[in-house]
Amino acid sequence: MTLHGKKNGRGWRFLEHTADIRIEMCGTDLKEVFVNAAFALSHLLGAKSDLPTSDKLEVDLEADGYEDLLVEWLRELLYRNQTSGFLVAEPRITTLTPTRVKATLRGRHVDMEAVGPDFEIKGVTYHGLSIRKDDNTYTATVVFDI
């Protein structure tokens, strides 16, 4: 299955939610789901497609199970953005187990006031959080509080 957001070919899309933002992302494996989740968050934070990759960050996170790990992953990316303006352009996941994700993030530290994203994302919630597998596709759903 390929998900189609506003533009074709993205591995994630918006779903309806009255007050918040609900995102569905997919992948042929879980690494791809996590990568698409990072792209979705970068998009929400206002990153353009030509975002430079001159800055690099390493992250190494732990949680109990892939679902919690996905929240932890997005939470970390959000925190990095909120405190130093880091936007991810190329997430490269080197390790992904049910309890750990290790990755090299390439992107750029930017002035977020100049970027002017459409939403202030307050947090990554556990509400309606799911990762499921149908045939050969993994699909995850996450709600961001805005």
Partner: peptide, 26 residues
């Protein structure tokens, strides 16, 4: 936001130790 986020993450873990059954993880 950060205070909420951090304590939620800790309580998602602690509910298991406390034996709490919840209909929604949030």
């Amino acid at each position: 936001y950060q205070v909420c986020d951090e304590f939620l993450a800790r309580m998602v873990k602690s509910v298991h130790h406390e034996g709490l059954e919840l209909p929604d993880k949030q």
